[in-house]
Design a protein around this nucleic acid. Structure first.
Lengths: 337, 337
DNA sequence: TATGGGGGGTTATCCGGTTCAGGGAGGGAG
DNA sequence: CTCCCTCCCTGAACCGGATAACCCCCCATA
């Protein structure tokens, strides 16, 4: 049983393929009666436009791509990506766009995947995430001339429009809050050093602490293991920090466990802040003070921009809301030492 | 600058389109010398096959679909899906298959999405997850006649091949272990009642406890909130359980927090087991005893079967490894009451 | 009554590849 | 010297729609 085509509809309705095409696309050129008849027949035999045939005539693929260059296991752990994806999905679904997803192991492979997809007209545009400094992917995508929205800091996105949030602002708010609570020795357990936003946060952290608090930064790979190890090291030092800001919730939770294991009471002896809120952060005891961002909204904004770009509109960089500090039980006044 | 087509290559090489098509597809019909020349030119001008044109001739889409009917926020929290997806991705990537992903809000919408994708030749097959009893999607997909692999229990997958694991086995191992530790009152905090695997586990749990331990089952929606509430209720009852088995790690962690908050010491007063291991389960204190499954491998097996099915092979149901109990600090001997 | 215009169709082509049915050249066998 | 068979390669049709261009007929208008 073959899939029905407009030719089948045409012969049934006793008109030409073209009339069917017009009727089904809402174009003028057929009478309402004929149109209704054609639509009824199409409906009856379950006709669906063949996207391949449409694409052949230069139509959109109605699909956008996302290649993720992170170890797959991180995806299962970091709520960030799934949050982003579900936000993206929300916008795409409303426009009947699909998301083509691929996990890759290197930036080179990622560029290849994008070239393939674009060359084969499988996608109308892509998202670029996890910017590095002097990111080769930016130049590559600019060269290909395809619609791209960078999810990351605009300083490194070249001519590509970016959707970003002011991490510096969030850092300042956090440090200000901790300092106001009396903390004078604060640490930051950061993510991957090579990511642009890590450096942005690092610099903002240093600047915010300058003159008001001792500060130290440790870089990790975002995993709970490294978060735990970093915490252990920090808490073992003679002048241990009274507050630690983690770059994600996984590490913050791991850090909390380490503190409890070492007999360091939270928040009495140590305040903990997690970057990116999540059910996980709220579920542990004490619940974690977190930098809340609406990540799905973030993804949704990026998706809206990408669709606009695909539609030919010009899209400026968009600054999304900065993270907002949500104080919970894991932060408190510094103990007067 | 238009994308190069085989016509461009043909004119450059001074041969016909057909020769180019044969050469680039490794078909006989062109001499090695000509083939080499054509390939060189194609390479030089960066030709890529246009998948739309190929699809028009009935070729594969080189893409499989997955529609997820769960609230988007669950995705960000449950490691299960991302684990599954990354396992699927691993297999697909090696064969240059992409994954088309869409989050939907109802089974009806899910069926529609599949119909669309299939009708539009965008995919060669799909995965079906989260089986319900008398699942309308099964009949629908059977009717469409497209390649489908069900990730779930074969008893409800109709004629569609299933990839599944024996949850009953895992339940028996867990209950046996708890009973051996002296537990005589055990509870199960289960997931969505309407899912097939929930019932399978429920029944196995009841059967395993029969005669050796009092048992109670509470159903939830997999969220930490409901996991916490269920735990609170269980621990407040006069004959509270000495062990609780949770259907995912999120609820287990939430339950652990509730226990600590209520002054119930784990594992002294309460043993906790989580279904599905994760970094999160290992990171909390005490680390959670878990039913470890290699979820990415599970996804990989499903993907292999789907590709085989697409290739026209016949695929029998495949029983993956059952979960294996990984004892950690959250379980211990029942306190002699 | 001739003219013009527009609604409602139609025919011809195209998109970029694949596939099928030959067709000319060259070589080996009879 | 023919005949036939391969090897290489070509023209044409085709996949399922979109689109440009044109045509016919009827009605309104001058």
């Amino acid at each position: 049983m073959k899939r029905p085509t407009i030719a089948d509809i045409a012969s049934r309705a006793g008109v030409s393929k073209v009339a069917v095409s017009y009727a089904l696309n809402g174009q003028p050129g057929v009478s309402d009666a004929t149109r209704a008849r054609i639509v009824a027949i199409a409906d009856e035999i379950g006709w669906r436009p063949n996207s391949a045939a449409r694409a052949l005539n230069g139509a959109r693929a109605n699909c956008v791509g996302l290649a993720l260059c992170r170890p797959a296991r991180i995806l299962g752990v970091e709520p960030y990506f799934m949050g982003l994806i579900s936000g993206i999905e929300g916008v795409l679904a409303a426009r009947s766009y699909a998301l083509l997803l691929q996990v890759v192991t290197s930036h080179q492979q990622e560029s290849e995947v994008y070239r393939h997809w674009w060359g084969e007209s499988r996608i109308d545009g892509v998202f670029l995430v996890d910017l590095h400094y002097s990111d080769a992917r930016v130049a590559e995508l600019e060269r290909l001339g395809m619609p791209v929205v960078v999810i990351g800091h605009p300083s490194e996105s070249g001519t590509l429009p970016a959707v970003w949030s002011d991490d510096g602002q969030a850092v300042r708010e956090t440090v200000g809050y901790l300092v106001a609570l009396g903390h004078r020795r604060v640490a930051r357990v950061a993510g991957l050093r090579e990511l642009v936003h890590t450096t942005v946060r690092d610099q903002a952290f240093q600047a915010a602490c300058e003159g008001v608090a001792e500060h130290v930064i440790v870089h990790t790979d975002y995993t709970g293991e490294q978060g735990a190890r970093a915490t252990r090291r920090l808490l073992s030092s003679p002048d241990r920090p009274t507050a630690i800001v983690y770059d994600n919730d996984i590490m913050a939770v791991a850090g909390l466990s380490v503190a409890q294991e070492m007999g360091v009471e939270v928040p009495r002896d140590l305040s903990i802040v997690a970057w990116d809120d999540s059910p996980l952060a709220q579920v542990v005891r004490p619940p974690l003070t977190a930098l809340t961002r609406d990540i799905p909204a973030y993804g949704a904004h990026a998706a809206q921009r990408l669709l606009a770009l695909i539609a030919g509109e010009s899209v400026p960089a968009f600054e999304d809301q900065a993270g907002v500090l949500t104080p919970r039980g894991s932060t408190g006044p510094a103990r007067s030492s």
